[in-house]
Computed example of a mutant assay.
Amino acid sequence: MPFPNIDPVALAIGPIAIRWYALGYLFGVGLGAGYGYLLLANSRLWHKGQLPFKAADIWDFAFWTMLSIVLGGRLGYVLFYNLPFYLENPAQILNTLDGGMSYHGGMLGLMLAAIVFTRSKQGNWLSALDLIASVSTIGIFLVRIANFINAELYGAPTTLPWGVIFPTDPEQLPRHPSQLYEAVLEGLLLFLIIRVFTHVFYSLRRPGMVAGVFGIGYGLSRIAVEFVRLPDAHIGYLFGGWLTMGMLLSLPLVLAGIGLVIYAATRSQSALRA
């Protein structure tokens, strides 16, 4: 299947070019904040006294979100994916034009920002992690679509009928559209699963449960896609086998998610009222 002719630049005004990738982050944060406002404003979803912060505060937190994702994503890429290069070229750390961003780094930055912001509001920081878990799938979906438009992060060669020939592929072979796999699994499907937990099981009443479900769901989805997604060329497969850096970084997320689910499911009612 040929690659659809989509310009990575969504809008150009003179020398200013606005790319779909940037819009994915921008709309991801904006739509996520809007959905987060609706969640916070729905008192039925939360146990009394367990809100991370007031619904109106979500717009202030949106600024923290964008800043923490960009800083965390960039630092995560530097540390996890290309540290030797940046140690030799420290001036390049701030050069984001090379596209180097790490999802896991951005997630860690967002978690830290959520904890600090929530504590400043005297809220429950575990509930803050539940909140960002509930809304972050929106941004994941949009950014993975933008990855596809950029013809980056594609997968291994395939004979399946939906294999895509990416214009950036020097071999011009049909490949797994791994960006779309991630958009569906980590974005759309995980959003629906978490929606069931928040609105059917009322899991936001047990702080840590939704964050745990997200950790398990995202981690397993990312590990599954990594089997067909090409690793970064300068890293390759780890230990000479099939293991990738994406798998290695996602495994602790799954384990932490399991721990959070067990903690949230077993904590006593007195702890919930604390």
Rank of each mutant, 00 (worst) to 15 (best):
Q122M: 07
D7S: 11
G49M: 15
S134M: 09
L67R: 15
R144D: 10
L39P: 03
N89R: 15
A91Q: 14
A17P: 04
L110S: 07
Y37K: 00
Y37N: 00
L94T: 14
S120Q: 12
A22E: 12
G76A: 10
N89Y: 13
D57G: 06
W46T: 07
N95C: 08
L83Y: 13
G139Y: 01
W125R: 06
M101E: 08
L51P: 03
T65R: 00
I69S: 02
Y37P: 02
P84C: 06
I6G: 05
G139W: 00
P52C: 12
S127G: 05
T96D: 10
L94F: 14
F61P: 00
T96P: 08
A62S: 15
N95I: 05
I93K: 05
A17R: 06
S102H: 05
F117V: 00
Y25S: 03
I16T: 12
I13V: 10
F85N: 13
A91L: 15
G100V: 06
T65W: 07
D60I: 01
A12F: 02
E88Q: 14
Y25P: 02
M66E: 11
N95Y: 10
G106P: 07
V29S: 06
I132H: 14
I140A: 04
L94R: 14
N124Y: 09
N95P: 09
W59M: 00
G32V: 06
I140E: 05
G123Q: 01
A133F: 08
S127W: 01
K121D: 02
I132W: 13
L26E: 11
G73Q: 14
R44N: 12
S134F: 01
F80K: 03
P4R: 05
F63A: 10
A10I: 10
L23I: 09
P4W: 08
I140V: 15
A41Y: 12
L39I: 13
M107E: 04
I138K: 08
L129T: 09
Y86L: 06
W125S: 11
H47I: 13
G106I: 04
K121L: 03
P52E: 04
A17W: 15
A128L: 05
G99Y: 07
I145Q: 08
A41W: 09
L23V: 14
F85E: 15
R119V: 08
A41F: 03
L23A: 01
G49W: 01
H47Q: 10
T65V: 14
